[in-house]
Nucleic acid binder design. Sequence first.
DNA 1: TTCATGGTTCGATCTTAATCGAAGCATTTG
DNA 2: CAAATGCTTCGATTAAGATCGAACCATGAA
Lengths: 227, 227
Amino acid sequence: MKEGPDIAHIAALIGDPARANMLTALMSGKALTVSELAEEAGVTIQTASSHLSKLDAGGLLRPRKQGRHKYFALASDEVAHVLEGLMGLAAGSGYLRKRTGPRDAELRQARVCYNHLAGDMGTQMFDSMIAQGHLTLDGEELVLTETGTAFVADFEIDIDGLLRARAPVCRECLDWSERRSHLAGSLGRAFLSRFEELSWAKRDQKTRVIAFSQNGAKAFNALFPAS
Amino acid sequence: MKEGPDIAHIAALIGDPARANMLTALMSGKALTVSELAEEAGVTIQTASSHLSKLDAGGLLRPRKQGRHKYFALASDEVAHVLEGLMGLAAGSGYLRKRTGPRDAELRQARVCYNHLAGDMGTQMFDSMIAQGHLTLDGEELVLTETGTAFVADFEIDIDGLLRARAPVCRECLDWSERRSHLAGSLGRAFLSRFEELSWAKRDQKTRVIAFSQNGAKAFNALFPAS
DNA sequence: TTCATGGTTCGATCTTAATCGAAGCATTTG
DNA sequence: CAAATGCTTCGATTAAGATCGAACCATGAA
């Protein structure tokens, strides 16, 4: 009589108010730090840490370390889907949660992050490459597919040179404004310098802002269409 | 911080092992009495009664009194849908209550999910109907096409009656074992009872297994060929 | 190096709620 | 009517786990 998945364990994970608040906050799709999630849930950081490791052990979260921060996001669409279903059951009409307020508009749109493109356009490029099948997530590792390699070569980036070098070619980097992934690694850097080479974009050395020309932005959007 | 639907409360309801067992038992679609559910959950009748009134208060159940018996069934397709989703998450993270045995294989192949067909054969039926153009996905919504209506009527299902009723006819339901959609809604239920009517299949009353006869399976495969 | 910051681990406390015995209703049957 | 059955309510016990202070670890900055 006791066959099948242990639904009680998973439901109990979601069933604690503090954890439910955290999960709800993560429904935005953004990754949040431990302290931010503690704040959202209204508990201390120790408590939040304990909750988050439980949620992680239950497979509901996808943690990523970056520097001395630890970011958490929902593990998959399925998790979000179940949470949505639960909200429906809870007879939910409009549930609104405050989003991170808009900061400096230019910095948010496009800026330099370790020599690669970050900000709104960075995440757009990343998402688009995933959607087009140029990049794919193999577990924790980000890999360039066959079509991706062709795509990059077509853009006149010396992909063979990058591959020969020992540095990691593709890396995910979490965006501080968007809280979503963008492309880092040697390929990320190559893309940015190619944009500059083509005069699509120009960096401001003092502010980290990247200014795209009108034509550059148009070309960029053609190459990396937003879904 | 108390605005919006209280997902923690409803998840906590599902999160107790005894209650989860009861809900899982009700996934068969049958209405069960308090004592049967107590047996299923492995608790005394008093305890079961307490659990059931909580589940009812949470809107997860639909109780019906009949003489001195009280029957409980799941409140809606949505509830069943969320439960299946939770099973998917639990199965994905490897939290199985029991290891995969012979019974498990049967469950994967064909089982009852709130009175409709789930498991391998459920997804096969769903995929086949999509492939044949009987069903189509209009955005988020699943709709029965013109040829689909004819197909269903041809199978001697009272489609007009279903359409007149207010309940949703076609719904997607995500399968926890297959991780794919199968057909739910009143049409899904009609199909399963028609299979039983034709003696193609028979449900096991204790488990959720659906056993197809040899001829039944043959006829099923002819009607819903796997791509 | 030292300091500051973000996160984790440990231990003790305390709240919540699951559980069941016993008694109380309600309905059917004899 | 009384007896039997199915379920609910009450109360006391008990076990689980949420919480936070304090100490600790790791990373980045000065």
